[in-house]
Amino acid sequence: MFTEVKTHLKLILKYFTFNLSALTEYRTSFLVQVFGMALNNASFAFFWWVLFDRLGTGIGGYGFTDVMFLWAVASTGFGLSHVFFANANRISGMIITGELDTYLLQPKNPLINSISARMSVTAWGDVIYGIVLMALIKASGMMWVMFGISIFTAALLITSIAVAGHSLTFYFGNMEAVGRTLWEFTITFSIYPETIFKGPVKALIMTAVPIGFITHVPLRLVRNFSWGTLLLLFGVTLAYALFAFILYMKGLRKYESGNLIVTRM
């Protein structure tokens, strides 16, 4: 078990350096896309700033800094997920076109192997943006600590949600749209104050699709730290990752491959 984890961590790191050198193949495009994404995100922060400025009060008990903390964690967490596992969002496509064949021929776990094989360029913009945002809002020490922890749990959760959603393709045929919607749902819900979600929606984002643990629980920890909540954050993250992994591996038995001509981009 331990050597398995070590082997696959090594593989993820290998893909990371490999993909990074692929991105620098197109240096100008790389830089334009990275800064373009950072700028794109910055425009949202500007709107929030205008909103809070006009209102003069908080929204649902959230101040401007709080909302920006959500943004920073979501942005960097999302960025890390797409820097390391950009293919997680392409799982449905890989299943349908038969692209998975290539990974199944190799002596590694097909899930880890396939999702780490690609890196998103713009995701670097998201990673950087979150960090810059933290600096701009003059985040407190506690905020920085929680940021440092939660970007990793966020990245893992975002990846796991994508894996779980797209794995349904194994069971029910093309679920690409479902996977994509889930992904947009994840982003949208993680950048708005927790308090605006009530009833069944709140129940959903705290359980089956644990979006609430991406940014909201970390913010709770910033406001009111407790070891129990921190452990809960770790526990839920790991449990959900395991759930997504099992869902995928069980689905793999139903894989039917395909004969589309496939190039690895």
Binding site: Y15, S21, A22, E25, Q106, N259, L260, V262, R264
Partner: peptide
């Protein structure tokens, strides 16, 4: 019909990865 090589990189990089 399927490729093991990365489209954007020289083959030697894909070989090293493999």
């Amino acid at each position: 019909q399927k490729s093991q090589l990365s489209f954007h990189l020289p083959p030697v990089d894909s070989f090293r990865l493999l």
